[in-house]
Simulated scan of single mutants.
Amino acid sequence: MSAVPELTLNNGVRIPQLGFGTFQIPPEETREKTLAALEAGYRHIDTAEMYGNEKQVGQAVRDSGLDRGDVFVTSKLNNDAHAYDDALKAFDGTMEELGLDRLDLFLVHWPLPGRGDFVETWKAMEEIYRSGRARAIGVSNFQPSHLRRLLENSVVVPAVNQVEAHPYLTQDVVRAFGSEHGIATEAWSPIAQGKVLGDPVIQGIADRLGKSTAQVTLRWHLQRGDVVFPKSSSPERMAENFDLFDFELTEGDMGEISALNRDERTGPDPDRFNG
């Protein structure tokens, strides 16, 4: 089994760079699929209250037989809980569902700029962090304008910003802002819901390397420094997505893939989405 590289977050917490995403996995399938991912070697599981499967993720972590300290678990605050007291209660609910004493990473799922004050939300996140019940806190789907306002009005710098990112949406501006301020970038929808898998540029690189286009795309993310969450319900595909550590993309390969950027989203625009 190849060792997954880790990144060090801005508070010193180590995070596995390759994780297993549970978005759109039905609750009744989540325990089984998460156990399969852990069996394949994944040690970072990403869930959210919004996904409705936190309970099953927690069950899988407990049932895996792995030491709790060996599995990094991330969850996210729901969009209906941005008020300070609501955020604290929602975190309590997440912990009860997961059945864990401590969460590795807790994120604000969306900034919702038209619905409320995410700075107030972040103050609740800081309180959760100070309590020690979350080892790190961060945000998801935040644009530089949202992050700038947060940094001007907060004490704790987000450890992570989880955003949609793939070769058709390279997120150079968001990633550069994060790098400047010590905020790690995590990529959701890393293969653009499959849209990039037939791209002739990626296919050409994959053919040369004897790898799949998904493997090449995920390797591109890793070499950029992203934390990435491929999602699959198939154990065979889970294993393929994990098999990323016996090859390397050249600088030319990286440039060709990055040049595919179209600023094309598969999900909502964070500046307009209000849940």
Score class of each variant (00 low, 15 high):
residue 103 L to I: 15
residue 103 L to H: 13
residue 103 L to F: 09
residue 104 D to L: 14
residue 105 L to C: 10
residue 106 F to E: 07
residue 107 L to I: 15
residue 108 V to P: 02
residue 108 V to D: 05
residue 113 P to M: 14
residue 113 P to L: 15
residue 114 G to L: 13
residue 115 R to Q: 08
residue 115 R to F: 02
residue 119 V to L: 12
residue 120 E to Y: 06
residue 120 E to P: 09
residue 122 W to L: 07
residue 122 W to K: 08
residue 122 W to C: 01
residue 122 W to H: 03
residue 123 K to N: 04
residue 125 M to V: 00
residue 126 E to L: 06
residue 127 E to N: 07
residue 127 E to F: 02
residue 128 I to C: 02
residue 128 I to Y: 09
residue 130 R to M: 00
residue 132 G to I: 03
residue 132 G to A: 01
residue 133 R to C: 00
residue 133 R to S: 06
residue 133 R to D: 00
residue 133 R to T: 01
residue 133 R to G: 00
residue 135 R to V: 01
residue 136 A to L: 13
residue 139 V to R: 07
residue 139 V to P: 08
residue 140 S to D: 14
residue 140 S to E: 12
residue 140 S to C: 14
residue 143 Q to Y: 04
residue 143 Q to G: 00
residue 144 P to G: 05
residue 146 H to E: 10
residue 146 H to W: 08
residue 147 L to P: 01
residue 149 R to L: 05
residue 150 L to M: 04
residue 152 E to W: 10
residue 155 V to I: 09
residue 155 V to T: 14
residue 155 V to D: 15
residue 156 V to Y: 11
residue 156 V to D: 11
residue 157 V to Y: 14
residue 157 V to S: 04
residue 158 P to K: 04
residue 159 A to W: 03
residue 161 N to R: 01
residue 162 Q to C: 10
residue 162 Q to L: 12
residue 163 V to S: 03
residue 163 V to N: 01
residue 164 E to G: 12
residue 165 A to P: 03
residue 167 P to L: 06
residue 167 P to V: 11
residue 168 Y to F: 15
residue 169 L to K: 03
residue 170 T to A: 15
residue 170 T to G: 04
residue 171 Q to K: 15
residue 173 V to R: 10
residue 176 A to H: 05
residue 179 S to F: 07
residue 184 A to K: 07
residue 185 T to W: 12
residue 188 W to C: 09
residue 189 S to W: 00
residue 191 I to H: 02
residue 192 A to C: 06
residue 193 Q to S: 12
residue 194 G to Q: 15
residue 199 D to Y: 01
residue 199 D to V: 05
residue 200 P to H: 05
residue 200 P to A: 06
residue 201 V to M: 14
residue 202 I to W: 04
residue 202 I to C: 00
residue 204 G to M: 09
residue 204 G to L: 12
residue 205 I to K: 06
residue 206 A to Y: 13
residue 208 R to C: 11
